[in-house]
Design a protein around this nucleic acid. Sequence first.
DNA 1: ACTATATAGTGTAATGATAACACTATATAG
DNA 2: CTATATAGTGTTATCATTACACTATATAGT
Lengths: 230, 230
Amino acid sequence: MNNNFEYSKILNTVDAVVFTYDNEELKILLVKREIEPFKNQWALPGGFLRDNETLEIAIKRELKEKANIESIFLEQLHSFSSINRDPRARVITTAFYALINNSNYKIKADADAIDAKWFLFNSNFKLAFDHNLIVDMAIKRLKKNLEYRPIGFELLPKYFTISQIQKLYEIIFDKEVDKRNFRKKLLKTELIIETDKFDKTGVKRPARLYFFNEDKYNEFKKEGFKFKII
Amino acid sequence: MNNNFEYSKILNTVDAVVFTYDNEELKILLVKREIEPFKNQWALPGGFLRDNETLEIAIKRELKEKANIESIFLEQLHSFSSINRDPRARVITTAFYALINNSNYKIKADADAIDAKWFLFNSNFKLAFDHNLIVDMAIKRLKKNLEYRPIGFELLPKYFTISQIQKLYEIIFDKEVDKRNFRKKLLKTELIIETDKFDKTGVKRPARLYFFNEDKYNEFKKEGFKFKII
DNA sequence: ACTATATAGTGTAATGATAACACTATATAG
DNA sequence: CTATATAGTGTTATCATTACACTATATAGT
């Protein structure tokens, strides 16, 4: 047992799998590493935990620094601790998964990241460290969560059409859904509220805009989400 | 950022919330601390991560050392990182939750733990560190998981009666379930296999013994558990 | 102005799942 | 041999899910 309360050889980092939905595509935020190891390779945004930070605060700071991202849906995913996952030292990373509702954040580079970009979630990117493993687990978790929790709204803009959210589910679950049944089910939950505005960006008949019913969401949170969205 | 690849002031531990089901009661394994801090208080079994161990290997070692527990159902729960959760130093713990199928393991004490005992899961124990927080999260996770995953069998002996498993669910979800409907639903999943043996320990009519259908379980794992047990 | 077109939006019937409900069967204890 | 506690069983009503095809409407092109 480690009884040395001064120092440890084990270092702690945080990393995040940040999803967004843009242009009818599910995307993941990656940053290009500017330093060794894995210099110039793409990796998840993240970095070392500081002495005075919780894991949650650290990942928020990293996302702010690396991608100018603030106030997003963020949950712990898993802590990865394989012995040799970092060639420099013994490093344990706690991975988060995050959802943001558009890709309009001004992604900026910092010391570590010379570049940050959105990648299609199912592209064959080969990432630094064990980050492919982390992404795989995040996608699994996202799917599992979306089935029973109405967190899909986190990925959508404030006002959205029913077609948009249906498309989002179809992409993530990789299956087509009946339009009438999806609408019925979604409207019955009362999780979305109708507006009298319409989305006129489409080329044909404009679709009605809705927004997310947070009160209803909080009710469901208490009851434990006894419904299935898809 | 921490660029010192020699040492960190942040230490890593692992802790486990081990559940079992015994005598129609859901119980949690706790150990009494033999050393400061929180000497003589009850705490979750766990300890420091060693340099050459993953988190998973460390918690298995700790459970073996502290409670002579091996080969159980074990999943990561969450990493807890509040700054002052350990008065000695900055310590991050990765908590696991575990299920074992009886309480007959010979619990033994080691250097850290002078005593280890099973406590009713809903008793008002006041634990060392932030371990009450960890237990609360584990119970929530257990409930959420039991709803959609047939992990309840991990808590039962190899051969069990349908009444036993029903009782288990009733205790964990704290609600009564219709006997006929529960049986129908459970048998339809084909997750249990009938034997021609009967449980004669009861005082009245013996109940048929069943065992868990692992093949079916593995099938479901692939498909993603599209059913609800309770 | 009219037409073509792409997408929005709507209802009903069949099927399957869940929930509600009460009695019989049987081994043991006395 | 009787009383008793627990095991074990089916049917109906309700609710949820699925399958399925047409009308509505704003825009673009003529």
